[in-house]
C-alpha cells in the first residue's frame, strides 16, 4: 500500500511535468496550426541555463529565475526568426525546419557545455523528505515539483477564464479568423503565446534538472510523451492536456512499477520481468491507440 501511494505521487510528478510541456505546445498547435518539433529544445535550454547559473551562484532559485526568461526570450526569438515564416507552409516544411532547429540546439549545447551531462543539485532547503501521510516519507523536492505544476495549472485556468489576453488566446485557438476579426493583434499574440509555451517548457526543464541528467537531446524523449498527451487530450485544449498529462504520467509510472509483479503471477520471474518491461514501455502508446479508435480527435478537442 505504501508503495502504491509513493508510485501514485511519482506518476503525479511526471504528469505535471508533462502538463507544463503540453499546455504550451497544444496552444501553439491549436492557434498557429504549426507542428513544432523543437519544443523539447526549450525544455533543454531551461535545464542547461538553470544548471549553469545554479552551479555558479549556488542558488537554485536564481537559476530558476534566470532560466524562465531565457527560455521565453529564446522562444520568442525563434518564433520571430523562423516559426513565423512557417505558419502558411505545408506540415512537411514545418517538420523539416523545426527538425533543423533541434539539430542546431542540440549541437549548440554540445559546443557550449560539452558532451558530458551536467548534474544539478536539489536545493538544500528541499533535500529532505516530508511525511505527507504518516509513515510515508516522500522527497520534498518532488512534492515541490507537484505543487508548482498544480499552481501553474490553476494560474493558466484563471488566465484563460478571467483575463482579456486569456480569452483572446482561447478565441484564437478555436477560431483563427474570428480572432482576427475581433481586432486582436495576431502577430503579437502569436509571439506571446509562443513565449509563454517555451517558458513553461523551460520551467519543466528546470524542475527535471535535479531528477534527470541535463544533456543534449534530453528534450526529445519528453517531446514524444508530450505528443502522446496532446493526441490524447485533443489539439488546442489546455484542459485536455491536463487530463492527458495526468493519464500518461500515471499509466507510465504505475505500469513500470507494478507490471513485473503482475506478470510474475503466471510467468517465470526472469521471463516476467522482460515481458513486463516491454509492455510497460508500450502502455501509454496502447492507451493512445485505444483513445484514437474511440475518439480520433482526442478527449476534448478545441476545434470541432
Amino acid at each position: 500500500m505504501l508503495l502504491v501511494i509513493e508510485q501514485l505521487l511519482n506518476g503525479l510528478q511526471l504528469g505535471v511535468t508533462l502538463f507544463l510541456m503540453s499546455a504550451g505546445l497544444t496552444l501553439i498547435f491549436g492557434i498557429m496550426r504549426v507542428i513544432n518539433l523543437a519544443h523539447g529544445s526549450f525544455y533543454m535550454i531551461g535545464a542547461y541555463v538553470a544548471a549553469t547559473v545554479a552551479a555558479r551562484s549556488g542558488s537554485f532559485l536564481l537559476g530558476l529565475l534566470v532560466a524562465l526568461p531565457a527560455a521565453a526570450l529564446v522562444g520568442m526569438l525563434v518564433e520571430i526568426v523562423v516559426l513565423r515564416r512557417l505558419y502558411k507552409k505545408d506540415h512537411v516544411d514545418q517538420v523539416l525546419a523545426t527538425f533543423g532547429l533541434i539539430m542546431f540546439f542540440n549541437e549548440l549545447t554540445r559546443v557550449v557545455w560539452g558532451r558530458q551531462p551536467l548534474f544539478m543539485d536539489v536545493p538544500s532547503w528541499l533535500s529532505g523528505s516530508v511525511e505527507l501521510i504518516p509513515g510515508i516519507p516522500y522527497p520534498s523536492y518532488r512534492i515541490a515539483v507537484i505543487g508548482v505544476g498544480l499552481l501553474v495549472a490553476v494560474f493558466l485556468y484563471l488566465m484563460f477564464t478571467r483575463t482579456r489576453i486569456g480569452m483572446q488566446i482561447r478565441a484564437g485557438a478555436s477560431n483563427r479568423s474570428m480572432a482576427g476579426a475581433l481586432g486582436i493583434n495576431i502577430k503579437l499574440l502569436y509571439t506571446l503565446v509562443f513565449g509563454l509555451g517555451t517558458m513553461l517548457a523551460g520551467l519543466a526543464g528546470v524542475m527535471a534538472g535535479p531528477i534527470l541528467a541535463v544533456e543534449a537531446g534530453m528534450g526529445e524523449s519528453i517531446l514524444i510523451l508530450t505528443f502522446v498527451v496532446i493526441v490524447i487530450g485533443g489539439i488546442g485544449s489546455v484542459r485536455g492536456a491536463f487530463i492527458g498529462a495526468l493519464l500518461v504520467g500515471m499509466i507510465d509510472t504505475l505500469g513500470r512499477a507494478f507490471l513485473p509483479a503482475f506478470f510474475r503471477l503466471f510467468l517465470a520471474t526472469a521471463h516476467a520481468d522482460g515481458v513486463a518491461a516491454s509492455v510497460a514501455s508500450m502502455s501509454i502508446y496502447i492507451l493512445m491507440a485505444i483513445i484514437l479508435v474511440w475518439r480520433p480527435k482526442g478527449l476534448l478537442p478545441a476545434h470541432t
Partner: peptide, 30 residues
Amino acid sequence: LSLRTSGMHFIMITLAFAQMLYFFFVALEG
C-alpha cells in the same frame, strides 16, 4: 490506426508508434 486521422495528428501518431517500437526493442533484453 493513424490513417483515421490526418494532418498534425497523423504526424504525431506515426511518430509515437515508431517510438513505441523503439522502446519495445530497448526493453527486449533477450
